[in-house]
């Protein structure tokens, strides 16, 4: 299956996206999403960027620090591949 990492926000609002093939099961992905998803909102942060994953046409804001060690390499690779989505 394919998983998408999306970065939004920033000093100028730019959206970046990367896609990668992974051999994770449906249950595994769902469990991962449950573990790393976070609520929307900025708190007192300003101009900060946020990460999201899209899966099955759904869009989940995630907390990078919560990504389990097992998946961090995949997410780091995705982060390195992020490219600007041209409007």
């Amino acid at each position: 299956m394919k998983i998408n990492l999306i970065r939004t926000g920033g000093f100028i609002p730019v959206t970046k996206k990367a896609e990668q093939e992974v051999d994770w099961s449906e249950e595994e992905v769902q469990s991962l999403i449950d573990a790393i998803k976070t609520g929307e909102g900025t708190g007192q942060a300003r101009d900060k960027t946020g990460y999201h994953i899209s899966y099955n046409a759904e869009f989940f804001p995630i907390e990078w620090e919560k990504i389990p060690v097992k998946y961090i390499t995949t997410f780091e690779e995705l982060k390195d591949k992020l490219a600007i989505v041209k409007k």
């Binding site: 007192q44 942060a45 101009d47």
Partner: peptide, 12 residues
């Protein structure tokens, strides 16, 4: 971060 293209205020 690596090649991070942004600056932000994190509340403190």
């Amino acid at each position: 971060d690596r090649k991070y293209d942004n600056a932000f205020w994190d509340g403190r």
